[in-house]
Amino acid sequence: MKYRLLHAALLLALAVDARADSLWPPKASFDDGSSLSLMGAAAYDFNRVDGHGYPAGAPLQDNDDWRRSELGVRYSRPGVLDLAATYDFNSDSWLDVGARIETRAMFGRDLGRVRIGQMKTTVGLEGNTASRSIPFMEFSTVTQAFFENRRVGVDWTLERPQFLAVASYFFKSDIDADNDGDTVGARLVWTPRKQEGDVLHLGLSASRETPDSGIARWRAKPELSLTAARLVDSGVIEHVDNIQRQGMEALWQRGPLQLQGEYLRQRTRRQDGFRDYASDGWYAMGSWLLTGESRPYAGANTSNPKPVRDSGAVELLARYSDLDLDADGIAGGREKNFTVGVNWYLTAYLKFVVDYTRVDARRRGQQADPNLLQARAQLHF
């Protein structure tokens, strides 16, 4: 109870002060142009479920709790380097931790940016969207299943007006060392249009992971924020030699309208005479900011819109996702979800989210079709 009251008091205090843009984010600036600032995010969620999971398990229940409680610090010297570290006290885990170095400062010309530390991996547009900026309550089932999440390693990014290229090498799972192994990846994005409120983004990505454990597992939550239940699950796959991921992504933006979609697939290569396993999925989503703003686009991704009215910005959204884990003798199941939502961005740092999801999941002859209603209050800076 004390923990919840502390969260609530912090959220209320920050929400009141968040209207004073000059105070956020908390920052100290120095004579050489560098700065030291705090970063954070606090999100409290409400889940309401009509229906349940499969009869044999995976109960889906009403719940309300903190979804994330992030706090970090960043040192920035524009044009030279950034140092950052963020911790999520809700999940007791480190998020992004590391350094980003501008090659212009070293070589006198822009040869890209180099990052070293723990960061998100290469394959997945939605997965690489900051958690505070995703339009819906949760990532699609497709992203949950196939995105590799954060790893420790190094990546290089070269960005030009009409393209972005990324090459990465990860040599450790994460700081907590949950699943060691190597991953190499690449991503190429073409942006023939990249102006404020006028974006066309087309991309391809691929990676190859070699897990030291020799095991893999593909599964996803039903886009419900406060549950550990999975309605589709390949189960543990052993004798894994390597995992190959591929992705295709597209994003179109015109003023307050945005369309986005991805196709992701994986192939689990097995040894000792065991059959390979491949599965795939896709999602498509659209959003419309009724109040006329556009989602900011930078670094081949989008972020929360900044309201231009005192009453804030209002966004309507819809997403369809289709994840198929039934293949190659493994009955992982198939799930199709349709979500509609509305977001209210009261300020640049405070937003409220409401999502409604209809789930259609089938696995091993069983069916689950719950309806999910969720709401979130989130502060971020």
Rank of each mutant, 00 (worst) to 15 (best):
V184L: 13
L12Q: 10
Y44R: 06
V49W: 03
R160A: 14
R362I: 01
R362C: 00
A8G: 10
A20S: 14
H201Y: 14
L200Y: 09
S133K: 05
L259T: 03
S234P: 02
A8V: 12
Y44N: 02
K306Y: 11
W344K: 05
F139P: 00
I134M: 10
V308S: 12
S279M: 09
S69H: 12
A167W: 04
L325H: 04
Y3H: 12
L83F: 14
V340Q: 08
G153L: 06
S76G: 00
M106Q: 11
E238N: 14
S29W: 08
F136K: 02
R132E: 14
D174V: 06
N149R: 14
A300D: 09
D50L: 06
L316A: 14
T291A: 04
L200N: 03
K336M: 06
G57N: 05
N128H: 02
L251P: 01
G341M: 01
M248W: 09
F338D: 01
N47S: 11
Y263S: 08
P307Q: 04
V184Q: 06
G312N: 06
A18P: 03
D21M: 07
A28G: 01
Y277Q: 02
R319G: 01
F46Y: 12
I237M: 07
S140E: 08
V353I: 15
K336D: 03
G72H: 07
R4L: 13
L350Q: 11
R309E: 07
T210V: 13
S234E: 03
N371T: 09
L325D: 02
K120T: 10
R100M: 11
V49T: 13
D355T: 04
Q378L: 12
S303D: 12
L71D: 00
N343M: 06
